[in-house]
Amino acid sequence: MKENKSEKPNRREFLLSCSKAIPLTGALFFPLSAARLLLAQESGDYDPTVHNYGMGIDIHKCIGCGRCAAACKTENNVPLEPHYFRTWVERYVLPSEGEALVDSPNGGIDGFPEMNEDIDTLRSFFVPKLCNHCTNAPCVQVCPVGATFITRDGVVLVDEKYCVGCRYCIQACPYGARFLHPEKKVADKCTFCYHRLAKGLLPACVEVCPTQARVFGEVGQQSSPLRRFLRFNDVIVLKSSLNTLPKVYYAGADGEVR
């Protein structure tokens, strides 16, 4: 035993000497984080911190013309083929008995075919869908590289240079709002037309909606069209039980809308 000790260090001594490296490591990392703090400086005249965007959708007003989905594809260069959409319109048909029937041929862009005559329809309506820009977004939580994130103005974006295309976020989104861009091979989704907001314009879908079924605005500010929408309507958010805290609010939607 004694001979052993003189030749090899015991565990205690080994750990002790290793521990001397710790302050060294810290000393190496400190300048990095200090430099990062210094880098954090504001730029530009658009101040994102004063905004928190959301959207209201009035189902009673939607005529299902699909112009929003068409405009979105043009504005955001979403491939026309195959079946990928950043926003789309679903038709709900509630039969007297049984589950709601939902369809969305080509996102509603070309209109909807005739309904099945055999169904005893109780009610039928259109529901525009898009990314819900959740405050508690599951897609952001699962992204392994930090390529999807919530901006300071409350918009969920994808960093297409940083995305590795692993599709975790597509799986995690309970609203089916994400897809893998067939050419760029990165996750893609609605941005609330972030590039338009920065220029003081409305999202393209809101701009072209003929019946003002889509209302865009600030969640937190008093003088915002969204505020009135929330004040006068009984609104729901989709799949509220998942606690994703969406910022797309639906008026006139019942529990059947998922």
Binding site: A40, S43, G44, Y46, P48, A71, T74, E75, G146, A147, T148, F149, I150, T151, R152, L157, D159, E160, K161, Y162, T191, Y194, H195, R196, L197, A198, K199, L201, A204, E207, V208
Partner: peptide
């Protein structure tokens, strides 16, 4: 600003508008 590349937001914001 968080666990993401802050410039990515500016890159999206600088895209061209069509409408």
């Amino acid at each position: 600003y968080g666990h993401y590349r802050a410039d990515a937001a500016d890159e999206v914001a600088s895209l061209d508008i069509k409408y």
